[in-house]
Design a binder for these strands. Structure first.
Length: 884
RNA sequence: GGGCGAAUAGCUCAGCGGUAGAGCGCCUGCUUUACACGCAGGAUGUCGGGGGUUCGAACCCCUCUUCGCCCACCA
């Protein structure tokens, strides 16, 4: 037997009567099923699109997790959403392909490996580049394996035969091809520009990798004397950079400084002469309206410098220490230099004032080091021309962003994009395919190392040592994973992909770049929809982080509750695009739901043996009702999934299973199954039909338990994973209305029993006020569900307890030793609420505006309500009188 | 400087124009031939404040407050 049917009994399990004849434990044990099922799915080839021959392709590429470490709870959400879509489409008959893979994550991975080396007293420099890269590959192998294992544990149905890594030979070829093509088209260039330099990571990073934080700082006002007398006062938060000033700028229209433009100022501390220039960038309102210009250490100043042909002086080096150009300050750390400069300015009388000021400090997102803007020779991608077609795609909705509010954010991100610095001074990554001639110093960019310089023919060429930004290769992921630049079958069949599922936090970093690369190199949007979700926070709403130690390991959750419980909990916690909170309570709730379904399945499977009739008869009211409700549920789940509202889909199945199938249908069907009423065979057929549909509807979200049940329902040779999605048949409004009256009456009787303190096992006499209140033949059902000895119609005399249902039906229960006070309290409560409601309805109907302006059906409904409520109130008054 | 999100029961969240909901927690009962990871019943809300639109607002508009994000050449 493939599957163990008997799991460990639950310690709290204590119902001796539940020794089940069909051998299923009463507590669902995920461990007994999950790994076996996953292996079986894989063995069947169910993860591959080929498992659905003839199906329409449906494709998702996984956002490749970094090989720096293990998956966190955010990955668990991201990938579960993808798996839900993939499994749903597969059940719908699509040839669903989910491409798995991992990202080499340049800086991050290099940093963790370097940290490990450091712990052993080594560094990448002691190893040398080749050996170091070899060690990073070993790390990658280790963590990739761990990640793949986690993917299996979560039940994600990825196609393992298509596992990819951003530095695979094929994907690396794509990277080179794209770089070379960009170069040919003039979209990539090398230049000496001001970049964000991280002194700790020792590499340039892109704008988006810098985090801006507001911090308390100081704004210094410094007096710069003028050549020939006078002075100008500038304001700065970084006085140490004044050593590299090459101008003072004022606004061209600023009357205060109209006469100064063209004159020379004398830089304090060094006495160097710098010109006073006019530039519209200067904000006259800020500070003194005069700006010190340091092209070597400020991006804005660099731009001003270019406009005015100013020289740039680098006074801070790559090590964040002052350079020789800083004269007396050379060798000092940049922050120590700031203090010294301020002290010296003060001593020499140049400091006008220093006032507290909030400054936005840029920090490296990886290591939190304060970024130093520095001029250096780097490679850049010109993004403006790339961005235009993406804007057009978003505006025409050929590229959708869900939820829609992110469309504008996406557009603004595209519009703000500046040239992208793509070279990194690292060893781990795709080495830039640029070769420098040692003879003529010209560069050759080519897919293969050239034998000779393209410019002078010399044969001595050196390859650029830098590697590309990780996002350069991730940007190609939707097509590089499918075989591009080759004309592969997967490209033909599975590209463009369908949906990109990712967190809003990497919309700009990643999604945008994929969009432009896809359009540029394949002529198509790489996906038609970007589905965004938020962050998974801790139960207090804090971001999960290593330093807070509040992170939740998804595998720990799986170990304790099973993958289905985690998946269900994650998915029900999210509204599209919003952050969500992780709580163990939610996971427990999901676990209980799985167990509830498991036990419903035990009931259905066991019911088969007990059916009294061999031939199915006509469906009864409850059969028609549950089918109708099932169809409503299927419709709703389909609608929700199509709209990417996955939490809604989960809730819908949950509520149907628990509140309708279990609470009412299974209970309603018991008399037939136990032979007290005929019709058992039809009940069994309906039970099985509904359970089968539940398994299929739930499978995308809870793949394991749905298959565990399915296999017992349909036979072990089968798997729900490759079953067909249930069809939403026609609704039966009559059955729904009739059965809901039955539920109303049963609930009313139960309420009265509880209020009257009737012993649970005792049978009561019940009366329903008018004979039309219950559907024909429903008395037996009500008797069973409400534990009544009889259910009649009429107006009983004497001391009966009564209650009014939401639908206005009055229900009476006879009690042997009536608790008159309790009965009176109930009546008064019902009377009070009915009278209040009647008053509201009356005043509404008395309002000529309402009657005149509201929709006619609304008015008609209110009139009907008025009549019903009036009758109810009158009836209750009579009841109260009878009670005395 | 611009933009976005959140604010509903003790907690986590649905609801987004027509009588305030769920789960958890809480209270009362209960071995009830699927399930005590359960069943039945119950209590609990100035739907952040203030204006407006509407016959009617938790829901639409304006405004304010609090919390959290993102973007921007924010000396």
């Amino acid at each position: 037997m493939l599957f163990a049917r008997v799991g460990a009994s639950h310690p709290r399990y204590q119902n001796p009567r539940a020794e089940v004849p069909w051998m299923l434990p009463s507590v669902y044990d995920p461990k007994a099923w999950e790994s076996t099922l996953y292996q079986d799915w894989e063995a069947r080839g169910a993860f591959r699109p080929e498992a659905r021959p003839g199906g329409r392709p449906f494709t998702i590429v996984i956002p490749p997790p970094n090989v720096t470490g293990r998956l966190h709870i955010g990955h668990a959400l991201d990938n579960t959403l993808q798996d839900v879509l993939i499994r749903w489409r597969r059940l719908k008959g699509d040839a669903a392909l989910w491409v798995p893979g991992t990202d080499h994550a340049g800086i991050a991975t290099q940093a963790v490996v370097e940290r490990r080396l450091q712990a052993r007293g080594q560094s990448r420099h002691t190893l040398g580049r080749a050996e170091f890269v070899k060690q990073v590959w070993a790390w990658k192998d280790e963590y990739e394996a761990a990640i793949c294992d986690q993917i299996r544990r979560l039940g994600w149905s990825v196609d393992w035969s298509r596992l990819r890594f951003t530095m695979d030979p094929g994907l690396s070829r794509a990277v080179t091809a794209v770089f070379v093509e960009y170069y040919r088209q003039g979209l990539v260039y090398r230049g000496e520009r001001i970049v964000n330099w991280c002194p700790s990571c020792q590499t340039a990073i892109s704008d988006i990798e810098v985090e801006h934080e507001e911090e308390p700082g100081t704004l210094y006002h410094v007096r710069y004397p003028l050549q020939g007398g006078g002075e100008v006062v500038i304001a700065t938060v970084r006085p140490e950079t004044m050593l590299g000033d090459t101008a003072v700028a004022v606004h061209p229209d600023d009357p205060r400084y109209a006469g100064l433009v063209g004159k020379m100022a004398l830089l304090p501390l060094t006495g160097r002469e710098i010109p006073i220039i006019a530039d519209a960038h200067v904000e006259p309102e800020f500070g003194t309206g005069a700006l010190k210009v340091t092209p070597g250490h400020d991006a804005d100043d660099f731009a001003i410098g270019q406009r005015h042909n100013l020289p740039a002086i680098t006074v801070i080096g790559f090590d964040a220490k002052m350079t020789e150009a800083a004269g007396a300050y050379a060798g000092l750390d940049r922050f120590a230099a700031r203090e010294r400069v301020v002290a010296d300015l003060q001593a020499q009388g140049h400091l006008v004032k220093a006032e507290p000021y909030t400054v936005a400090v840029g920090r490296c997102e990886r290591c939190n080091t304060v970024i130093e803007p520095l001029i250096s020779l780097q490679w850049f991608v010109r993004v403006r021309p790339l961005v235009e077609p993406v804007l057009a795609a978003v505006r025409s909705s050929s590229l959708r962003v869900v939820p829609e509010r992110f469309v504008r954010i996406f557009e603004q991100g595209l519009e703000n994009e500046h040239d992208w610095c793509v070279s990194r001074q690292l060893w781990w990554g795709h080495q830039i395919p640029a070769y420098y001639c040692e003879a003529c110093h010209e560069v050759t960019v080519a897919e293969e190392p050239p034998a000779a310089c393209a410019h002078c023919g010399a044969t001595s060429l050196l390859r650029d040592p830098d590697v590309l930004d990780t996002w350069f290769s991730s940007a190609l992921w939707p097509f590089s994973t499918l075989g591009w630049p080759d004309q592969s079958e997967d490209m033909a069949r599975h590209y463009p992909t369908d949906v990109l599922v990712t967190g809003y936090d990497i919309l700009f970093k990643w999604a945008m770049k994929m969009a432009w690369s896809g359009i540029r190199f394949t002529g198509k949007n790489p996906f038609h929809t970007i589905l965004l979700h938020g962050l998974v926070r801790d139960h207090q709403g804090r971001k999960m982080s290593k330093s807070l130690g509040n992170g939740v390991d998804p595998i720990e959750v799986v170990d304790r509750y099973g993958a289905d419980a985690l998946r269900f909990a994650l998915v029900t916690g999210v509204a599209p695009g919003n952050d969500s909170r992780f709580t163990w309570e939610r996971v427990e709730g999901a676990q209980r739901f799985g167990n509830k379904l498991w036990n419903a399945a035990r009931f259905v499977l066991g019911a088969e043996d007990e059916a009294s009739q061999p031939q199915p008869g006509d469906p009864t009211l409850e059969d028609r009702w549950i089918r109708s409700r099932l169809h409503a549920c299927i419709e709703d789940v389909d609608r929700a999934l199509a709209a990417f509202e996955i939490g809604d889909a989960a809730r819908s199945v949950h509520d149907f299973v628990w509140s309708e199938f279990c609470d009412w249908y299974i209970e309603a069907v018991k008399p037939r199954l136990y032979g007290r009423i005929p019709g058992g065979a039809e009940a069994v057929a309906t039970l099985r039909e509904v359970l089968s549909a539940i398994c299929r509807m739930l499978h995308p979200i809870m793949p394991f338990i749905s298959d565990a049940i399915w296999r017992q329902l349909a036979g072990e040779g089968s798997t729900v994973m490759l079953a067909d999605w249930p069809a939403a048949g026609a609704r039966d409004p009559g059955a729904e209305a009739d059965f809901s009256r039955i539920m109303d009456v049963v609930s009313a009787i139960r309420t009265l029993r509880a209020e009257q303190g009737v012993a649970p096992a005792a049978r009561v006499r019940a009366v329903v006020e008018n004979s039309g209140a219950l559907p024909e033949g429903a008395e037996g059902l009500v008797r069973e569900l409400a534990r009544a000895e009889s259910v009649e119609s009429g107006h009983p005399q004497g001391a009966w307890a009564s209650a009014v249902t939401g639908s206005g039906i009055t229900v009476y229960v006879a009690v042997s030793a009536a608790d008159a006070d309790a009965a009176r309290r109930r009546l008064e409560k019902d009377l009070q609420s009915a009278a209040a409601e009647l008053e509201r309805v009356r005043s509404r109907l008395d309002n000529a505006n309402f009657v005149g302006k509201a929709a006619p059906e609304v008015v008609a409904r209110e009139r009907q309500r008025q009549d019903d409520l009036a009758a109810t109130v009158a009836g209750l008054r009579i009841q109260l009188e009878r009670l005395g």
